[in-house]
Amino acid sequence: MKKTTVEKAKEKPKFEEPRTRSRTFVIGCGKLGASIANDSSRRGFSVVVIDSDPDSFALLEENFSGDRFVADAADLYALKTRGLPAAKEVIITTGDDNLSLFLAKACARIYQIPYIFVRFDDPDMGLLLQRESNIRIIYPFQLSRDYLNKLREEAQGK
């Protein structure tokens, strides 16, 4: 019977055993993504970084030991061939909330990746991922605001 697109995308890549979920995928190699990738590499994680702009890899350190691939993150087939279905954790920092939403949902529902971390600018995006238990979200705007308020309280307390 002919396989559907989703079934084909779910197939594990041949070069990696389905049970070995050991790699950390960082999708989006901006300042935050590159920083996480560098840090994970230094700590000995097996890291794969994906970005559509090859120039973005300039943010990776010289001794970065992971893999780097140029790919359109909206193309799940391209991500599949890079081994995404066998990832242990995925960190999504694309800078485009709608693309990040799509990737987070696909990683959770299609590939069942156990740990998914996603950054959103718009706090309302969390509404759309309420039912996904394996996705954790950060909002830099809220983190900055909360930290700034904490600093103000500390300063005024002095």
């Binding site: 697109t5 193309d75 529902r109």
Partner: peptide
């Protein structure tokens, strides 16, 4: 636009 997204989007709600 991308025809591959038809089945992905349907699978994702």
């Amino acid at each position: 636009d991308n025809p591959n997204n038809v089945e992905f989007f349907e699978a994702l709600g």
